[in-house]
Simulated assay, not measured.
Amino acid sequence: MAKDETLDRRIQEEIEGRIVSGDWPPGYRIPFEVDLAAQYGCSRMTVNKVLTRLASAGLLERRRRSGTVVTRPVAQSAVLEIHDIESEVKSLNLPYDYQLVRRVQRKFRAADAARLALPPSASILELHCIHLAGRKPFCHEDRIINLDAVPDAAEVDFTGTAPGPWLINQVPWSTAEHLIRAVAAGEDQAKALEIAPGTACLVVERRTWNDIGMITHVRLTYPGDRHALVAQFSPQGARA
């Protein structure tokens, strides 16, 4: 490998590392090209090529007069699909990670009735998880699973596997319902997402069923400036 190519890779990896680690957060103006060229002992053209590639990847935004800043990435997911959070994060060119915060197996409670219509004798698995993008909280997941419909879930600890992909792979579903709303982050959500209480958040709630009955209800909470929902549709009766 040529020396210039090795230096290109080194510069790109180091800048990506600063962005992903949060050392250079969204909105941060990175050093000017001439300063980076001096730091790495290379030409300004070499730095320019690296920054152009990072801008094309969506990590940087190049502004003519104010310099180059770290972008504030916004993930998109389809409203009418059961989306995969790991794929959302990777679409932003950020590394994905997942943490299980709490796992509780318990009996059905009256407060659960608004989420799943089940008999009082039903058994529930309650899960609280954090999905991370570049070491920063990306989404808080609050999920309950009907163990009468999915008994195998009681044997899974979910410390290394997110419940969403596991359910999709293990349990066929036939019907899903989405509810989308805006909320102000409460104390618990704000702490989990590392944002200020009252910050605007986007909440996606989903229930799924199969022939046995209700499978799960999940509440996904995203900081409002980091996520968008997209739907494609046609007029009723329209033909392609």
Results as ranks from 00 to 15, higher is better:
34 V>P: 01
115 R>M: 10
110 A>L: 11
208 T>N: 05
189 Q>M: 10
34 V>Y: 09
165 P>Q: 03
109 R>E: 14
174 S>H: 06
66 S>Y: 07
37 A>F: 03
240 A>T: 14
205 E>L: 04
151 P>G: 07
25 P>M: 02
181 R>G: 14
121 S>N: 09
18 R>A: 15
212 I>Y: 05
148 D>E: 12
225 D>E: 12
102 R>N: 15
2 A>Q: 09
104 V>G: 01
165 P>Y: 02
54 L>R: 00
162 A>D: 04
108 F>C: 08
162 A>H: 00
112 D>M: 02
159 T>I: 13
146 N>Q: 08
8 D>F: 12
232 Q>H: 12
13 E>W: 05
60 L>V: 05
106 R>P: 06
104 V>P: 00
140 H>L: 15
63 R>D: 10
44 R>V: 15
210 N>Q: 07
25 P>N: 06
116 L>A: 01
90 K>F: 07
136 K>A: 15
212 I>Q: 12
51 L>P: 00
163 P>G: 01
169 N>M: 09
164 G>T: 14
200 A>P: 06
91 S>R: 09
175 T>D: 10
68 T>Q: 06
10 R>N: 11
65 R>D: 13
145 I>V: 15
202 L>Q: 08
19 I>D: 01
114 A>R: 12
60 L>W: 03
137 P>F: 03
57 A>H: 08
143 R>W: 02
189 Q>F: 03
195 I>E: 06
202 L>R: 09
2 A>E: 12
96 Y>Q: 03
176 A>D: 04
230 V>W: 08
13 E>I: 14
205 E>T: 02
144 I>A: 00
97 D>E: 12
163 P>S: 14
193 L>F: 06
46 T>L: 14
51 L>G: 04
13 E>A: 15
197 P>N: 02
187 E>I: 08
214 M>P: 13
3 K>Y: 10
4 D>W: 06
235 P>C: 06
191 K>N: 13
5 E>Q: 11
88 E>R: 07
113 A>W: 00
91 S>T: 13
143 R>G: 00
234 S>T: 13
177 E>G: 10
98 Y>C: 08
199 T>F: 03
82 I>F: 03
45 M>T: 15
42 C>G: 05
74 V>T: 14
40 Y>T: 09
